[in-house]
Design a protein around this nucleic acid. Sequence first.
DNA 1: GTCTATACTACGATAGAC
DNA 2: GTCTATCGTAGTATAGAC
Lengths: 206, 206
Amino acid sequence: MMQDRLIETAIDQFGRLGFDGASTRDIARASETAMSSITYHFGGKQGLYLACADHIAAKLRERHAPSMEMTKDAQELDRETAIERCLAIVDMLAQTMLHPDSEHWARFIVREQQAPTEAFERLYEGAMQAVLTGVRSLLERARPDIPRDELGAMAMLIFGQSLVLRAARATVCKALGATQLDEAEGALLRRHIRSNTLAILSGETQ
Amino acid sequence: MMQDRLIETAIDQFGRLGFDGASTRDIARASETAMSSITYHFGGKQGLYLACADHIAAKLRERHAPSMEMTKDAQELDRETAIERCLAIVDMLAQTMLHPDSEHWARFIVREQQAPTEAFERLYEGAMQAVLTGVRSLLERARPDIPRDELGAMAMLIFGQSLVLRAARATVCKALGATQLDEAEGALLRRHIRSNTLAILSGETQ
DNA sequence: GTCTATACTACGATAGAC
DNA sequence: GTCTATCGTAGTATAGAC
């Protein structure tokens, strides 16, 4: 399908060059079609951009479906199980950030975070919101000492350890003395993320 | 000075729109000068871009000079003092990420992280490297159980909690149910960053 | 040093053939 | 549904007046 082909290419180009930097000419050429196909299928550059956001949200939702399953019965879990599930979800997120496939669309998302447009709403409501809500309900069991309205903040701070692997990838590589993050570095980082998160979640219950 | 005026405007525009999205016409107009001033002072758009990176590095270096002072004698510190200083530096970083002034240049940096150019080298060598090295030496005292070649990774993961406040600002706001991060949200986040980091640094020494 | 004027290139959108 | 051709706009760079 030509539409998917265009979207895949566009996510890469938009992520790399930004909305203005990317050119519909180049996207069409790389997809081996005419520029006017974009007008036909998506109505224009803006329409293609939003279609990219929807596509990414769907991928994300699919990828984190197993994590979501683990948060369904959060209310009934004991503390240790809740902690263990949090660790599993955080590790899943870390793996996503380390996975080469995430390179293209992660750039797209990070860009939207800086200057949110309608595309960010689609990303958030289409995928992020569910993960955030799920983890929040697990944190409620794992850290009953924390007020409920502060759990969202805690979730984001914990996620930060994983998100930094994409959002500040260049610096992470420098810090590790590596040119890229492959199997060895990934394992090391995941190990530390796990033990750090465990330390945080095992914190005082008062 | 017209050069500074152009740089300030350019950091904002480049950060917001990316290298291609920003236009020298607009930057010149917003700086109330002619477009050809950019050619004269910086040689062209690319030169202006690199000058922005140098300017940001200098600002960062200045801002974190006190933190750097605290890492000078890291070798001689006892564990508790090393931990306390780490917490202070991490809090300083969090404050930087929360400070409204960082909005403009933080966007610039995050952009460079995604697709590093020569500007990233200038940012890293001009400012980030020193902070990273300093914190690594503190971590060596705070967590003697961690192999030395893994301390860079640890530093970045800990920083991640603060960096996420800029890199994923839009999602952080959603998670807090806020439209922006002001005094109240900032205090809450800093408090949790501190206690999370303390939990991590107080970890097993084997 | 700073301006105006201009040359040249590339962009997105669209009309119309097939 | 996909192509080619073209229009109008906006980009950077540069030459030359002051």
